[in-house]
Write a protein that binds this DNA or RNA. Structure first.
Lengths: 218, 218
DNA sequence: CTACATTGTTAGATCAGTCTAACAAAATTG
DNA sequence: CAATTTTGTTAGACTGATCTAACAATGTAG
């Protein structure tokens, strides 16, 4: 069974993997906030346990078992976040920190019960998909708000970043998942976008914000 | 902040402390399932951190800070057990294992929220008191069923042991907290007790069982 | 293609938490 | 109270996860 540390490495590896499923040691080190030698020794351990493929001076790749176990940790994290929001009344900006700890609990029925109580949700409070019990993750491809055209009506469906600061910024603008946005105009110079939604008749969103907003065209 | 290991030692120390607040190294070793040298080195660490008083060849004693922090871990454990039973539908025999893990989560608002959702319960699903936010624990003195007399009507209010096996035994007999028992007779030879309750007209409970049942005389 | 920058590895140390073996103090018991 | 048992301590080793310093391989840019 994976230690908490190992679970954290699996999660990072899963999230950092590129199209070729590869992750560099340096990326992983910076993501995990540890030194490269630490990562070097840890990938050897993870390899020994069948979670990844490692060859000297090459990027590492999760094995199918590694991907599955990583997805199951992510499942625990996202189920927890959803439970905290839907069943315990927390705000979407408060749950990450708690879920970071709860995700390491080894008690299948605890998470099964959460899942059941919530009616088997498929996304977490930030719009990210919740992997199933077998670690399968449904790919959703939303558009970034930056890719949309003026005049379009879109619905906010996900985020590419869920930092507390960003979530609090969105709270301050009354923006939440499900909010329908009308794109009033796009500024060519700085790529900012003017939108209207709910009782906001005109709100300007910077490119920095728009690129983090994932939407579904209505 | 206490590590998980330290939290576990604090909990054991709190539970093992006798009238003089003392705990022997050997007791602690057996409770924690580690060797005596391990305990020896750990108590030195705990002392360094202000949680206990240690002198060579003497039993150890928790400091006020140690007692408080121990009680706060026990609070997290018992709130979790109660939440699992009352809000998530688990049986009282299922919750200990999960709570053993959840108790190490460092997220005050998570436990505050549980507490609030349950209406600030004072006992856990096994009848043990839940310490308050300041680590104060209200002493309840129930009688052991063995101390009761034939003819008395008593209500099951607590347990001195909450092992899964014992809880499953009680489930099999339809015995739960709040059950009112009429003591029909006491057998002098083996100290077994015959009781009636609910729709059980006559059930014989061995001394082993009776001594673990805490009751309130009606 | 060589030089420099970046990335990755090795060696060796540290810390927390654990162990066993050997020994010492304290408690018990004839 | 002396002998034996129980309890506790010390020394030294190990594992997991981390570090820094030194070095080696790879990638990049003139």
């Amino acid at each position: 069974m994976a230690s908490q540390t190992e679970e954290n490495y699996l999660k990072s590896l899963f999230n950092l993997a590129n199209e070729k499923d590869e992750v560099n040691i340096s990326e992983l080190a910076s993501q995990m906030q540890v030194s490269m030698p630490t990562v070097n020794s840890m990938v050897k351990t993870l390899q020994k346990n069948g979670w990844l493929i490692y060859e000297k001076y090459k990027p590492v790749t999760l094995t199918p078992a590694g991907k599955k176990d990583a997805a199951l940790v992510i499942r625990k994290h996202r189920l927890t976040e959803m439970f905290l929001v839907n069943k315990m009344g927390f705000g979407w900006e408060e749950v990450h920190e708690i879920a970071e700890q709860v995700e390491h609990i080894h008690a299948p029925k605890f998470f099964e019960r959460m899942d059941e109580m919530m009616g088997f949700p498929t996304i977490d409070p930030h719009g990210s998909p919740i992997p199933d019990k077998l670690g399968r993750i449904q790919e959703i491809n939303y558009l970034s708000l930056t890719e949309c055209k003026a005049g379009q009506l879109v619905k906010l469906a996900g985020l590419t970043n869920s930092s507390t600061e960003f979530l609090e910024f969105l709270n301050g603008r009354n923006l939440s998942l499900g909010t329908e946005l009308r794109i009033l105009s796009k500024e060519a110079y700085d790529h900012s976008i003017v939108v209207s939604y709910s009782n906001h008749t005109s709100e300007t969103l910077s490119e920095k914000v728009c690129e983090k907003l994932l939407v579904k065209v209505m």
